[in-house]
């Protein structure tokens, strides 16, 4: 399923690095670790990685600056942010800098596995062999990783055409509009998602985050 994928874990906490490595071993991917941004840069130079798990709080160069750099030098690397801070601004900044997703501590092995494999699977997606709702959504998420926001919007709209009764695509469209700084449009789509399913949590969280800050401020792409 996953071919020739390699993962780089960047965290200053030894035990986090170790447990993450252990958890992701089952994905049959090559896993490397780096203790800080500087070491991670060294590793990137030597090898190409599909996914990078990045702790925003790092000694030396901080995670956000490092993320900016990665996007410039190696834009193909999908970055998943790990953070202990629920601070919204840094998470939003990270999204806007091109991180595909982020996960908040504390998490469990399955959560991180699912997230990473989802991101890896997206890489194998091809527009030509995708015809279903979820496929278009994943394609859209992949396009976000590639910083093709317009094409991501196209994919989301295709998903909506397939099934306009599901909230996920509207939520994602909201996120995309938010990335284009269209706050009102984003909120409108989050509301549509909520009207379709009042219990759809990602849209709830996104809506309250865009109107104000909230308890949990991360952008939620929906699972």
């Amino acid at each position: 399923m996953i071919r020739n994928s390699s993962i780089l874990i960047v965290d200053d906490e030894k035990n986090i690095r170790f447990t993450l490595t252990e958890a992701l071993t089952s994905l049959a991917a090559e896993i490397d670790t780096a203790i800080n941004a500087e070491e991670a840069l060294e590793k990137i130079k030597q090898k190409s990685y599909s996914v990078m798990l990045l702790d925003l709080k790092l000694p030396g160069m901080d995670g956000i600056s490092f993320l900016k750099m990665i996007n410039e030098i190696r834009p193909e690397i999908r970055v998943i942010i790990i953070t202990a801070h629920g601070s919204i601004e840094s998470a939003v900044d990270a999204m806007k800098l091109g991180a595909v997703d982020f996960i908040q501590k504390p998490f469990v092995p399955n959560e991180i596995r699912e997230l990473v494999s989802q991101v890896l699977e997206r890489e194998t997606l091809d527009e030509k062999n995708v015809q279903d709702y979820n496929g278009f959504l994943e394609l859209a998420k992949k396009s976000i990783g590639d910083h093709y926001i317009e094409s991501a919007i196209e994919f989301v709209k295709k998903a909506i055409n397939i099934d306009s009764k599901r909230p996920e695509a509207y939520n994602l469209l909201g996120v995309l509009l938010e990335l284009q700084h269209d706050r009102e449009g984003a909120q409108r789509n989050y509301r549509v998602a909520l009207s379709l399913d009042p219990s759809y949590e990602p849209a709830q969280k996104n809506l309250s985050r865009t109107t104000h800050s909230s308890l949990n401020g991360k952008i939620n792409l929906g699972e």
């Binding site: 906490e13 035990n15 986090i16 170790f18 447990t19 993450l20 252990e22 958890a23 202990a84 801070h85 501590k105 504390p106 998490f107 469990v108 092995p109 399955n110």
Partner: peptide, 20 residues
């Protein structure tokens, strides 16, 4: 509670892996 998160994550991860 922030600072507790990192050790908590390591413990949770370890325990979950051990349970698996």
């Amino acid at each position: 509670s922030h600072e507790l998160r990192t050790p908590l994550t390591s413990i949770i991860m370890s325990v979950e892996l051990l349970r698996e």
